[in-house]
Amino acid sequence: MRGLLSMEGGLERAKEAMRMGHAAAVRLANLSLDPVVTDPHAIWCLARNFKAHADEIGVDVPLKPMIFHRVAASQIGNLQPLVRPQVSEKFDYEGELAIVIGREGRHIARADALGHVAGFSCYNEGSVRDWQRHSSQIGAGKNFAGTGAFGPWLVTPDEVGDIGSQILSTRLNGVQVQHAALYRHFESRGLQPVEVECEECKALNQGRTFRVKEPASGLTFEFYAEVIQMIRPFTSSLAKIARLGHVVIGASSFDSTYNSLINDFGFRVSDYTPGRFAFLRCFPNPYHHSFAVGQAERNHLHHINFMVSEIDDIGRAVNRLRDAGVEISFGPGRHHASGSVFLYFSDPDGLTAEYSYGMEEFSEIGAREARMLERGKDAADLWGGSPSPAFGAAGGIG
């Protein structure tokens, strides 16, 4: 590769050969690939070079670049196994963008810098975390043999386009553990997302995970790339619960919370009462609402909903809860906005849970416009019921 890059017009000559359609001497499937550049002049690495990774490992972004070296002998090619050294159990993935410099230069103006780039490639910089911390120099944990996966291709700048718009994604044994797009979105909105450490992700049986707070209510949202798939499907024992339906919160600053949920988090509005309440859905979830927010004196969790499979689940739950001495705080009844038949009750901690059956569904292509709804008792229950004081009273947001 260095010979090709040092050759006058080397990359253009290679492209021309491809355009002419010369038959390959060997099949790619029969090859074992080396690193993209096997004998680089130097491998300069920038530590903590983007905020998402700094958050992931629990450190601050440095004010000035932190530079270390990796040696060429530590590299391997595409689809070759990364090797954990015997001296450590703290071997970690680290997806990176490799930039290959093709044209020499010094004192280069920022505007001219990309003109010296021959191309870009993928790099999994396997890192031995405990050896990184043996001293102030982290290179000890970055240079074990077989820990730097480089490739498979060198992609030239004309093929990449705007490098700043590309997405870095890393998969570990088929599970996505890094993905920058959504994280960057929240960063661009000034919301300071925080990565969940690997050990906690493992305990949660999730892939890469981060959390971000809605600023007005203080509610924390958790986003994960993948979650473990159970061998046996869920089997109901009492109510035939189909899915977690929705979450409803009360917010002391309704308008600010509502605007953030729409503009920062991307919810779509199904129905609303101006300044008082909004039913929101997550695209492409078709159900009338997967989240809702109402004006309240304090920020708090109002209730969590479980959608059941049969209307008989509602009727059986009424008798089962009464027989068990569980307080029914509202219902059974029917909501005007969604059309759902509902039943609210208190769990052992006093938090409000809801069973519901039936709900309006939206086609996102040509979905109806959000309706501005009238306030009134019938809006909550078309059957004329009223909630008890325990309804939505005990939850908090911390």
Rank of each mutant, 00 (worst) to 15 (best):
G333C: 02
S32R: 15
M1N: 06
A149P: 00
F391Y: 13
S290A: 12
A370S: 11
K202L: 13
R208C: 13
M18Q: 10
D39V: 10
K51T: 06
I101C: 10
I231K: 14
R13C: 07
S338W: 14
F342I: 08
N299W: 04
L97R: 09
E297N: 15
G250C: 02
G119F: 11
M18F: 11
V177G: 02
L244G: 13
A394G: 13
V341K: 15
N173H: 03
R281Y: 11
Y272R: 11
R84E: 03
G333K: 01
I43Y: 06
G174T: 02
L97A: 09
F306S: 12
G294K: 03
F330H: 02
F120G: 07
G245V: 09
S217G: 08
R232P: 06
P233L: 09
A278E: 01
V71I: 14
T170R: 10
M18N: 10
V37L: 10
I101Y: 05
I231C: 11
E197I: 09
L33D: 00
L382C: 11
P85L: 05
N30M: 03
N173G: 04
P215Q: 05
F283G: 05
A317I: 00
K213D: 13
M372D: 14
V248A: 11
S252K: 11
G164L: 00
V100L: 05
S188Y: 02
Q132L: 09
A393V: 00
L4A: 01
P348V: 05
H300V: 00
I163P: 03
D39N: 12
F265V: 08
C201F: 01
E199A: 15
G339I: 04
F144N: 08
L114M: 15
R322Y: 06
M20P: 03
A52E: 03
H179M: 03
V326P: 09
D55H: 09
Y258I: 01
A317G: 06
G174C: 02
W44Y: 12
P81W: 14
G350N: 09
Y123T: 06
M1C: 11
K142Y: 03
H179L: 05
D92R: 15
N285A: 10
N299R: 09
A225D: 13
R189M: 15
L82T: 12
L301V: 02
C282A: 13
S340Y: 00
D92T: 07
V71W: 06
A393D: 12
M20A: 15
D60I: 08
R106M: 08
L191G: 03
Q206A: 15
C282R: 08
H288A: 13
S290N: 07
G392M: 00
G105N: 10
R184A: 14
G275N: 11
M307E: 05
Y355T: 00
L82S: 10
N124G: 07
G9K: 07
V248F: 03
S6T: 07
E89H: 10
Y287P: 02
D92M: 13
D55F: 00
E89M: 06
T38I: 08
Q86E: 11
A394M: 15
H22M: 09
V71D: 12
S386I: 08
S188K: 09
V37E: 05
V37M: 03
V26Y: 04
E222Q: 15
G58C: 06
T273A: 13
E360D: 14
T209N: 05
V155L: 04
P157T: 08
P286K: 14
R232Y: 12
S165C: 13
A390R: 01
